[in-house]
Design a protein around this nucleic acid. Structure first.
Lengths: 188, 188, 188, 188
DNA sequence: TATGAATGAGATTTCATTCAT
DNA sequence: CATGAATGAAATCTCATTCAT
């Protein structure tokens, strides 16, 4: 349910009451239970759809060039993430709560698969000589994920940036950093 | 209260019950109220100490060189943030909850002051020719803050990185990106 | 409805939900209301059919000899009860619930009629000298009814007894007790 | 809690609400949870105390003579049962509900131990020649238990019998039946 | 200061029943 | 007749907070 996701994103999963969801849907709280088994099954549905979508994006990479692959992953991620903004916020905010439950074991599995994709790309780029040889693949992934996966709410509206601007700015920063230089390599 | 902060960091502010805090302290829940007015006053105390400390770090910058200043700010932030991991998690997770309350108005003010410091540094670096002239100062700040302010739990232990390694990796990424190049400009 | 009765017997009237009955019938819960006015009307139908049947058995006694009459009543009761196991369990388990409602006033009336039959037989047997003169008719009836009316689930299958074996065992116990004696007076 | 047991006995475990218990105790429903973890833990406490007491009575038999032992068991049972009238009714009424839960596994175990005591006594009496040799020990136990364990509510007040009268009537019935005879063997 | 019983508001969930289609 | 969405009352339970001792 889309409405529920918005509320979970805005107020947090625990802090959002079933009654608030029902109110937003224009029905009584008890009536929600015709559509869902429990509050947690709503969260389950939102999160599992989200991760299925994210993984599909990662698996759709169709190039062997690490730099190009990273660009594809970033653009795919960003698109997916903005489509599932609510789910992403839920995941960030209540990761400890969700990931501790057996029902949500797939969260850890999906995150692990995602990490592997990034690390593999970094390592390949280092062997190719395309990336700095002293790059710590795992550390870099962790730092990146923090940016890419940050609740994207501020990326729309508030700052007035278009999604593409944010992605371009991010890729530029990722490949080249902020230092001025002759002949930048970013942005094909 | 330090114990309370740890619990808030682990389970979230809302999800942590007063009884859990009291249990951790080895007293009964009712007895907590001899030490604190309310659960929110515990949160208030933790968060305000945290932000006071962060701002002190930002105000301690003692150089006019943007690049050096950014390094100082990053190192100071990282140190402060790792000292207040609990507070940081609380802020991230329940930002909407806290920032909506008049009692926590200082949160927005502090965040605004921090943003101004970064933007000023970026703009000065662009004028100096030290940073790329097409850098979007505000966007870059937002992207950076996401990394710097991410709950840092993963940065210790799990990956086995020392704090300095994380900071260095971050600065290197920030200044130079991941692309290989002759004559890196990063430190050490 | 037979399905409903089985469920009431298995889980109790209160604990059985309308949806469970509908599920067992292969329809949706709302559709049940095309067949019945309410959950209680299902209970009403089951219980009234049961008691009608029981009373018919009691009224069918066609001998004046108390001992023979008791045998007839016991055999008739046992047969009826095993045909209405579900109803019997409902009556036992939720007697307080049903008997407090005006709709189910006939329950008390039927039970009273049954008690009168037994007491009359005992008193007649005492006058005849067939039964012990110190027999407390009412107390004996109460003790007996407890056995006869016990939910008979254990009497089938589990122990492997045939219905006749149970009845014979009961009658033998009733007439002679457990003590060994020369020349038993029990049947077969 | 004694009050809760009375209500459970009167209305059934499921049908008794936590609020009714709290009302009876003169507190609010939420306040009950200072004393008990859950409604079921109240039931647990009541039932386990009851069965502990019953088993103690059975284990206290101090004679090898089957007839005397049965009398001891009956008298002990009756005393215990009347002390735990509420628990007994709960057990009868909601046996299916309780015994299906892992938490209440001890119920089945206790009932099994009790059954063994009776069967052993009957078998010994048959070998001694004291009881009828054609007595079905298990069937007789089941019939007896139905009487002894029937909710004893009616045994007080309504009929006006003293507990001893009921026990004596029961024992007389058990040993000798209802048939008139020269020289009864009942009642030492 | 600590205890522990109690409060009272509110959360999630259940369920018999209704009704437009 | 059946569906399935919705109702609304009520049930169990949680939890921050208070207060007499």
């Amino acid at each position: 349910m889309h409405l529920a996701g918005e509320l979970f994103a805005e107020k947090g999963f625990r802090a959002t009451t079933v009654r608030e969801i029902a109110d937003a849907a224009g029905i009584l709280s008890g009536s929600l239970y015709h559509h869902f088994d429990s509050k947690e099954s709503i969260g389950d549905q939102i999160l599992s759809e989200f991760l299925t979508d994210v993984l599909a994006g990662y698996r759709g990479v169709d190039t062997d060039d690490p730099r190009a692959a990273i660009e594809q992953v970033v653009r795919a991620s960003t698109a997916t993430l903005s489509r599932h903004r609510a789910a992403l916020t839920m995941l960030q905010r209540d990761w400890n709560y969700f990931s501790a439950q057996p029902r949500f074991a797939y969260l850890r599995e999906a995150m692990h698969e995602i990490e592997q994709v990034w690390i593999t790309l970094f390592e390949r780029g280092k062997r190719d000589g395309q990336f700095r040889s002293d790059l710590d693949a795992k550390l870099t992934y962790r730092l990146l994920r923090d940016v890419l996966w940050m609740p994207t709410s501020w990326r729309q509206g508030e700052g007035g940036w278009q999604p593409d601007e944010v992605v371009d700015g991010f890729l530029r920063l990722l490949f080249d950093g902020i230092t001025a230089r002759n002949g930048s390599t970013a942005r094909n």
